[in-house]
């Protein structure tokens, strides 16, 4: 008696979702995504000059997209497979009559879902907190709200899939992921020139630029940067997700794990 790919994926995903809700790691990731909202609320309450759109764009751009999204995704993405290996519980899953790729998909999907939900809540709270700022401007428009939501969700999906695949391929995924987040996403994405194209951060920003309004112009270098068209960046992100999923599933189907007793 064997279990098919989709059925196994669904079974693992539903169980994993339940476990996620009880996991400290998932809540830590959620807190990371809520942090910009908390900062926005504190700043809005403490300072009378800061404006709603200024607060939401600056915190959304630098804190949410630049720091919270990559870090929260790293925290949960790496856990998709590497945590089971570290906990040595992967044996139970690998020795069941299921396609191994289902294990990857089944554990990745709840992580992405969870992070998407948290980023949606985080974005909504950030915008709500920024809206309470007392500085006078046009307020937080849909041209700020929706691009931020879109980029945050696309960001967690892409980063999480990438880090999940990394967790299957390399032994110290968290460390490699941290190095990647720092050097490529943190450093390269802020260098001028076309090197930015190599980073996910650039494509997320392109999503914002493609759907956002003039409120984003207050970000340093926003107007001077040549952003990718919306469709192109969306396509690049979708391709990264597809390739990382395929690479992770393919590797998991072939990889053996040497677990200590």
């Amino acid at each position: 008696m064997t279990t098919g790919f989709w059925r196994a994926s669904l079974l693992i995903a539903t169980t994993q979702l339940g476990l996620l809700a009880r996991s400290r790691r998932a809540w830590a990731a959620a807190c990371l995504l809520l942090l910009p909202a908390i900062i926005a609320w504190l700043v809005a309450a403490a300072n009378a000059k800061v404006t709603p759109s200024g607060l939401s764009t600056m915190l959304g751009w630098y804190a949410l997209l630049g720091v919270s999204v990559p870090l929260a995704s790293l925290l949960l993405g790496v856990a998709v497979v590497a945590e089971e290996v570290e906990d040595r519980t992967i044996t139970y899953l690998l020795l069941r009559p299921i396609p191994r790729a289902a294990l990857f998909v089944g554990r990745l999907a709840p992580a992405v879902l969870w992070l998407c939900a948290c980023s949606a809540v985080g974005t909504a709270l950030l915008v709500a907190a920024a809206a309470t700022a007392r500085g006078s401007d046009a307020g937080v428009s849909d041209g700020v709200r929706l691009p931020l939501l879109l980029a945050a969700c696309a960001g967690v999906a892409t980063y999480t899939t990438l880090h999940a695949a990394l967790g299957v391929w390399v032994k110290h995924a968290m460390i490699v992921g941290l190095a990647y987040s720092f050097t490529i996403e943190g450093f390269l994405s802020n260098l001028p020139g076309r090197n930015q194209l190599l980073t996910i951060q650039y494509h997320l920003r392109s999503l914002v630029a493609g759907t956002g309004d003039d409120a984003w112009q207050r970000i340093d270098g926003f107007g001077a940067t040549e952003w990718n068209p919306l469709f192109d960046s969306g396509l690049v992100l979708a391709l990264v997700v597809a390739c990382a999923s395929a690479a992770g599933a393919w590797r998991l189907a072939r990889r053996q794990f040497e677990l200590p007793a």
């Binding site: 630049g66 968290m174 460390i175 941290l178």
Partner: peptide
């Protein structure tokens, strides 16, 4: 390790952001 780097990243980004926002 992730916590240490997260702390440095977050504190750095927040500090720069707030100093700029609030002048």
């Amino acid at each position: 390790l992730a916590g240490v780097f997260a702390w440095f990243m977050f504190s750095g980004a927040t500090a720069l952001l707030l100093s700029r926002l609030l002048k």
